[in-house]
Design a protein around this nucleic acid. Structure first.
Lengths: 196, 196
DNA sequence: CCATCATGTCTACGAGTGTAGACTCAAACA
DNA sequence: TGTTTGAGTCTACACTCGTAGACATGATGG
């Protein structure tokens, strides 16, 4: 609490390359998640990071390479599944219901994925990121026949719920109570985690 | 068999307003499905319809209103479910596996939905279309508790599979044989059609 | 045959895009 | 203290976008 500086915008750094790079990256993750790859310009990202647009090119080479790093950040630490073992299906269903609630307004890899899917270059970048992070991690958690297919079906179901409930806000899913919705989704996830 | 989907010389209409309007609408459905709302410009749509960009504004008022009509066309006649009654789950799973196959390169409402979801105006238009067509039709087919939620979960699952398998082309889903994939998805749909 | 009006085209504008190049300025090292 | 280096900014270019307004054209009714 020693910093008495009132940060009017993003905390006026004094020439710290690493911090500036990180600020741009953070702003990019938020912006791409909210508006998609094509929906946001480099000027907008730079402004919310407190710098000029050209610094993006200096630090990341291009908008596309910035997007690639942002995707890596969004997919890497985030948990795309919740819980382990027997609790996996239930936890995933409950977490999904909570995070897609209309009042949640959360960010996360699924929104980034959905809102940037239209651009072919962005799609390719995200496919690689999924293979590198989420898909692999989830594939290890599952076991048995066709673990990869079942893992990606879990991702697909989650992505679809994010799309209808959070992005499009269709009536039935938007108005469904969290517990009830989770109760409907839980057996679906269980079918994928425990394929009898 | 008619001509290819991209008419090289758009058959030189001689001043037929209705036919021109229809040609623009057809081109719009194809273009929006392939590239999304933000991914295609009115000049491109007009050219593949064999007219000038300004005719779009004359006949539809704006790009956004053209999109609204295109969404209606894409969602209305298309079947978002396959089969009825007991066969619904199995037919839907098999049709989904077939239409999302890498070599299929089909169009359809789900691709249009996914690729235009990033734009807020487009999202609102599509939410209304879903409520008007797919959601309602599917809700009638289902019965029992929370039919609306289960219907939209069916849509969500399908949308997610379209996203991962067809748009992103993730490895496991891309390489899975149709029958095997359908076998994995069928019990999921059955859980939603017959909630025991 | 000619006037008419819907049908379609042309030019242009204002705004927004990503990014290249030249610039300024602060900090670190001699 | 003077010099070098890198952090950050400014201006500008070469596009693309949606669309507004003026203009051309061809089929049709008299």
């Amino acid at each position: 609490m020693m910093d008495a500086d009132v940060p009017r915008t993003p905390a006026r750094r004094r020439r710290d390359a690493a911090a500036t790079r990180q600020a741009i990256l953070d702003a990019a993750v938020a912006a791409f998640t909210r508006h998609g790859y094509d929906g946001v310009g480099v000027r907008e990202i730079a402004q919310s990071a407190g710098v000029t647009a050209m610094l993006i090119n200096r630090y990341f080479g291009s908008k596309e390479q910035l997007f690639a790093e942002a995707v890596d950040v969004a997919f890497a630490p985030r948990t795309v599944i919740a819980g382990t073992g027997d609790a996996l299906a239930g936890e995933t269903a409950r977490a999904l219901a909570a995070r897609t609630a209309p009042e949640a307004d959360e960010l996360g890899p699924f929104l980034l994925m959905l809102r940037s899917a239209a651009n072919p270059s962005a799609a390719e970048i995200m496919r690689d990121a999924i293979a590198r992070h989420a898909g692999r991690h989830l594939g290890e958690e599952l076991s048995g026949d066709a673990a990869g297919v079942r893992a990606e079906l879990m991702l697909a179901l989650q992505a679809g719920v994010w799309l209808l409930r959070s992005v499009l806000a269709t009536t039935a899913l938007r108005d469904a109570p969290q517990e009830e919705l989770a109760a409907h989704m839980e057996p679906l996830f269980r079918r994928l985690t425990d394929p009898q």
